[in-house]
Design a protein around this nucleic acid. Sequence first.
DNA 1: GTGATACCTGAACGGATGTTCAAGTGTTTG
DNA 2: CAAACACTTGAACATCCGTTCAGGTATCAC
Lengths: 117, 117
Amino acid sequence: MSDSEEAIQAIGENAPVSEILSVEKAQRMAEFFGVLGDPNRWRILSALASRELPVGELAEAVEMSESAVSHQLRVLRTMRLVSYRKRGRNVYYCLKDKHIFNLYQEASEHLDEPDDG
Amino acid sequence: MSDSEEAIQAIGENAPVSEILSVEKAQRMAEFFGVLGDPNRWRILSALASRELPVGELAEAVEMSESAVSHQLRVLRTMRLVSYRKRGRNVYYCLKDKHIFNLYQEASEHLDEPDDG
DNA sequence: GTGATACCTGAACGGATGTTCAAGTGTTTG
DNA sequence: CAAACACTTGAACATCCGTTCAGGTATCAC
C-alpha cells in the first residue's frame, strides 16, 4: 500500500481507532500546511496569481523588504508552490501549479460557512 | 464585492499586480492553514476521521497527554474543524465537516506530484 | 577594470507556539 | 458527604519562525 493510500484510508473511511496518520505522513502534511500558515506568504502567492513577477516588484507589491521576500520565496520553492526563471539580472517567479487555487477555495468555503456548517 | 469574491478574483484571474489579498484576508487564511501546520493536530484529526472519540481514548490513540490533546482540541474547535457532545463525564469529539478531507486530498496530490508537476 | 543593480544568504533578535505541570470544574460512585 | 474520574485551564519554559541587517554573488553599463 502506498503512503498516500494508507493515509487516505486512515482519514477517509470507517477505520479502527488505531488507523491514524503515521508520524511521518502527519509531519509532511504539517510542513506543507505550515508554509501556508503565514499571511505574507499568502500575499506573495496572490500577487503571483495575477502574473509572473521579478523579486523587486513583488516586494514592492506586498510591501515587504526584498530580503524578507527572498527568504519566503525560498520556502515556497522548497514546497514547490512557485517556480522561477532567470532573465538577465532579474529572477521571475510564478505559481507552480493549480493546487494552490483549490486549497484557497476550499479554505475560503470553510471560513465562509455559518457556525452550524 | 464580498470579501470572498475580492480574494478569489485577486488570486484566480488575470488581475493587476495591485490586486493582492488584503492583509485581513491573508491573515484569516494564514490562521486557518496554520492550524493544519502541526503534525499532532493531523494525527488527532485522522483519529477522529474513523469515529467519534472521548478525549482520553483520543489521547491514547495519538500517544499524547490528555492535557496536550485538550489544548489542541480547543484550537481545532476555534477553527470549527471539530465539534463535540457531552455525555456524562465524557466529551466526545468528531470532525465537523468534509472540508478537511478535501484539503487533505489536495495536499496529498501536491506532495505526491513529480518534481516537474 | 569600477560602480550600480538585482537578488541571495547567514546570523541574530523578538514574538509566536506547543508542551508539561499543577490546579481547577463538573460528574458519577459509594 | 468524600473520592475517583474525565476533562479543562493558566503559567512557565523551550523551541520554532519571520524579520532585519550586513554582507555576498552575479549581471549589466560605463
